[in-house]
């Protein structure tokens, strides 16, 4: 089944201007987290926030709406959000933690819940997981090379980055777009054995692929995720459209094409590595 198990899929756009002004696309992650915090579903969230180094994210424990909004926007290099979970459960004494992460980080959260070795009284405090669509990720040095050597702009001048329509684009002092294939060599190697584009194990997963600018494609996958989203929709947080409104090549057709591409690439990489006699985690591709 394409996109893993899910209950509903929809196109969403946040209505709150404070969110849409800073969000990457439809503002789904920021809005749903703020709503969950207000409703007491969560009492804090692990997020990738800005650090002192331009575009190098750092994991933070956000416990207010302001902190959640301040962390909005995609960063294309990895933020080890799971590393902050113990701090959230201990020094912050959070009981209901939300985790926002890439599909691999959602795996980590689910594995921690399944066998919480070394995570005593931590995994049971995970209250919500929000997964972000991910085709691949860059190391920070790789990202900097893409921006400064390929796009030819200083990284500190960049205000937004996007991947879409076959391009990697940066906006800021100068808007530049380069073919996405130029960036492939800077991807993290681990991403090449990953089969998951749509964060198939999250409660809610979302990303821009398949919907027009300013909108996000959103899956609800669990009862918890579905119930929360229904309440958020009833509370008028989002404009909603059916995915069927976006005909091929947009919509789910586009998402499925990219997802299949990622899964096929992972299978091929695993086969290549196995042929070389290298170890690959059993069952890593599906």
């Amino acid at each position: 089944m394409a996109f893993g198990k899910y209950k509903e899929v929809m196109a969403l756009k946040a209505k709150d201007a404070k969110v849409t002004g800073v969000a990457q696309d439809g503002g789904v992650v920021t809005s749903i987290l703020c709503y969950a915090l207000e409703q007491g579903v969560i009492d804090g969230a692990l997020l990738a926030a800005k650090s002192d180094t331009p575009w190098l994210p750092k994991p933070v424990v956000a416990t207010t709406k302001e902190e959640i909004i301040a962390a909005a926007g995609t960063k294309y290099t990895i933020s080890p959000n799971m590393s902050a979970i113990k701090s959230a459960a201990r020094e912050y004494a959070l009981d209901k933690i939300a985790i926002v992460g890439t599909p691999c980080q959602i795996y980590a959260a689910r594995k921690m819940q399944l066998y919480p070795f070394g995570a005593r009284h931590i995994a049971d405090k995970i209250a919500l997981t929000v997964g972000i669509f991910c085709t691949e990720n860059f190391s920070y040095a790789g990202l900097k090379t893409v921006i400064e050597d390929h796009c030819k702009v200083p990284i500190e001048s960049v205000t937004k980055m996007e991947i879409g329509k076959g391009k990697f684009s940066v906006k800021g002092a100068k808007d530049v777009a380069i073919p996405i294939k130029e960036t492939h060599k800077y991807e993290q190697d681990g991403c090449h054995v990953c089969s998951d584009l749509t964060a198939e194990f999250a409660d809610i997963s979302t990303g821009s692929i398949g919907t027009p600018d300013g909108w996000s494609t959103c899956f609800t996958r669990t009862t918890k995720g579905s119930d929360l989203m229904k309440k958020a929709l009833a509370a008028g947080l989002f404009e909603k459209k059916e995915m069927a409104e976006f005909a091929a090549p947009m919509g789910l057709a586009m998402l499925e094409k990219l997802e299949t591409g990622k899964k096929d690439k992972a299978k091929k990489t695993v086969a290549d590595r196995t042929a070389l006699g290298l170890f690959t985690t059993p069952g890593i591709v599906y």
Binding site: D43, T63, K86, S87, A89, R90, E91, Y92, A93, L94, R120, H121
Partner: peptide, 27 residues
């Protein structure tokens, strides 16, 4: 102890020189 020490059994926050990290106001 979990909150202040980082772990209830063998608390890693107890360090030479004090405690590794302070706790939040909410904690």
């Amino acid at each position: 102890v979990d909150i202040t020490g980082g772990e209830a059994i063998h608390a890693p926050n107890i360090r030479i020189g004090g405690m590794k990290t302070n706790i939040s106001e909410a904690a």
